[in-house]
Amino acid sequence: MTILCLRFQLPSAGETVLPGLLTLLREFTPVVEAAPPDAALADLGGAERYFGRNAVELAAVIRVRALALYGVDCAIGAGPGPMLARMAARDAAPGVTRVVHEDPDAVAEFLADKPVWALPGVGAATARTLGSYGLDTIGRLAAAPLSTVQRLVGARAGRELHEKAHGIDRSRVVPNAAARSLASERTFPRDELDPFQHRRALLSITEELGARLRAEKQVCRVLALTVRYADRSTTTRSRTLPEPTAHSSALTDAAYRMYEALGLQRARVRAVALRAEGLGPAEGTAHQLSFDPEDEKARRLEEAADKARARFGPGAVIPGALAA
């Protein structure tokens, strides 16, 4: 067991903390992969030999140091590969390390009762196709003949899916750096079922991100949405914007579109987060001209609101939908 997946409980301004946390991980191993918006993978194969400790013991040290240096707790998954480590981290509560041992029986037991959509690469359409044939859990998928799975989803995809259902993971931890980004999260006081409250939280976040981008004279090219559910599982989607922007209305529209595309029906949502990625300087950024007077009016109002916030604080001006 050499791979850790760490899901950090980042504050709203997590983009300022994440690079430091990645640096902390690199004190244990150079093989660290940032996994935005709030996670990282670390291959501890060499670290186990160097420090004379196993991955679980090293995970405990990393957690203590993250808390001491940054005030950030984390949920940690440990497994023989990135896929199982990620899945274990989704099962773990903050302050807990969930371990999946390399033994095939232990892997099979860990995966057996999980829904097929828990496997990476299985979207809603594939899950529906498999479910219509009774392959709604990973255990049932693993027990199905390879030829059956290939007939349902295709030869190549079927083979990859069948391997993943048996815990076979051919991916590796690829060292990278955290991309420059801005992020914010809203956690509900209780598991929230109401889509209106979900959208209200997204509006609050896009207003905040837009104001922060404009204050820093930045624009973003990509917006990523993360939804965390009551069972601590998460869904992340991203969208490349039509043009780089810092305007809250454009961010809100993109966030709503991603949220609607998830098709959440009576989902128990614990938190929603947005991350503005692909940042660049606003100066010199091309803007597509609009002849819509409402668009120009919105931009003028946004400029006036920014001036009021700069003078009286971030809560000086908020949308009417958030004042109710």
Rank of each mutant, 00 (worst) to 15 (best):
L135G: 02
I168F: 09
L161A: 12
D169E: 09
A157G: 12
A165E: 06
E163R: 13
T137Q: 05
G154H: 01
P145R: 04
L152G: 05
Q150H: 04
A165G: 13
R151K: 15
L141Q: 05
P145Y: 08
K164T: 07
I138S: 00
A165I: 05
A142I: 00
A157R: 14
L161T: 12
I138Q: 02
A157M: 15
G158D: 07
L141Y: 00
D136L: 08
V153S: 04
G134I: 01
G154V: 01
R156S: 15
G139F: 12
H162K: 13
E160F: 14
G158H: 05
H166D: 09
I138T: 02
A157H: 15
I138R: 00
E163S: 12
A155W: 08
L146P: 06
A157Y: 10
T148P: 10
R159E: 15
L161Q: 09
I168N: 10
L152C: 09
A157L: 15
V153I: 14
D136F: 14
V149A: 03
I138P: 00
A157N: 12
G134A: 09
I168Y: 13
E160Y: 12
R140W: 06
G158C: 03
R140P: 04
P145I: 05
L146C: 10
H162Y: 09
G158Y: 07
G154C: 05
A165F: 03
E160S: 11
R159D: 11
S147E: 14
G139S: 11
A142G: 07
G158N: 06
R159C: 14
Q150D: 08
G154I: 00
R159P: 12
T148R: 12
R159A: 11
I168P: 09
E160Q: 11
I168L: 14
G139Q: 06
A155Q: 14
T137Y: 02
T148I: 04
E160W: 11
T137K: 06
H166L: 04
T137H: 02
G134Q: 03
H166W: 15
D169T: 02
V153D: 06
L146S: 06
H162F: 13
I168T: 12
L152Y: 05
E160D: 14
H162R: 11
T137A: 01
T148V: 11
I168G: 09
R151F: 08
K164N: 13
K164M: 15
A165M: 10
A155I: 11
T137S: 05
E160V: 13
V149E: 02
G158Q: 06
L152P: 07
A143V: 04
D169S: 02
T137N: 03
A142D: 07
H162S: 15
T137G: 04
Q150C: 09
G158K: 03
A155F: 08
H162C: 03
H166Q: 14
T137C: 00
A165H: 04
V153W: 06
D169M: 02
D169I: 00
L135R: 03
L146T: 11
S147W: 09
A142N: 02
I138E: 01
L146Q: 09
E160P: 04
I168H: 08
A155S: 07
A143L: 11
L146E: 12
A165S: 14
I138N: 03
G154E: 00
A144Q: 01
R151P: 01
G154N: 05
R140F: 03
D136M: 05
V149R: 01
